[in-house]
C-alpha cells in the first residue's frame, strides 16, 4: 500500500515541480530509471513468488542504480558512452521482459 502511494507521490512531485536535471546527472538519469524499473519488476515477481524481502529489494534497487550509473560513467570515460548505455538498456530491458513474463505466468498461468 505504502509502496503504491510512494510511487504515486513521486510521479506527482516530478510532474508538478518540474525540476531541471543537473547537467552532470543528465547521462545517468535515464539509465538509473531503467535500472530501478528492473529492480521493481523483480520485486513484484518475488512478491508473487512469496519470497519478497524488503531488505533484498532495497539492496538490489540501490545496487542496480549504482552499477548502471557506473557503467555509463565508465563508458563515457572510455569514449563508448552511448554504445554502453544502449547495451545496459538492452540487458535491463531483457530482464524486465523476463520478469514480466514470469509475473504473467504466475498470475494467468499463460
Amino acid at each position: 500500500m505504502i509502496a503504491v502511494l510512494g510511487l504515486l507521490v513521486g510521479v506527482l512531485l516530478g510532474l508538478f515541480l518540474e525540476p531541471s536535471v543537473p547537467l552532470a546527472l543528465q547521462p545517468y538519469l535515464p539509465i538509473a530509471v531503467v535500472a530501478a524499473l528492473d529492480a521493481t519488476f523483480g520485486a513484484l515477481r518475488a512478491l508473487l513468488d512469496g519470497i519478497f524481502d524488503d531488505r533484498v529489494f532495497v539492496i538490489s534497487f540501490v545496487s542496480n542504480v549504482l552499477v548502471a550509473a557506473l557503467i555509463v560513467y565508465l563508458g563515457d570515460q572510455l569514449g563508448v558512452g552511448s554504445q554502453l548505455s544502449t547495451g545496459v538498456v538492452v540487458v535491463l530491458g531483457i530482464r524486465i521482459f523476463s520478469n514480466v513474463a514470469a509475473i504473467r505466468r504466475k498470475l494467468l498461468h499463460a
Partner: peptide, 20 residues
C-alpha cells in the same frame, strides 16, 4: 514497507523528471 515506498517514490520522481 516505508523504505520500499520511499524508493518507489524516488523512482517515480526520477522517471517523471526524465520524461518532462
Amino acid at each position: 514497507q516505508a523504505v520500499v515506498g520511499v524508493l518507489l517514490a524516488v523512482l517515480g520522481f526520477a522517471a517523471a523528471v526524465q520524461v518532462s
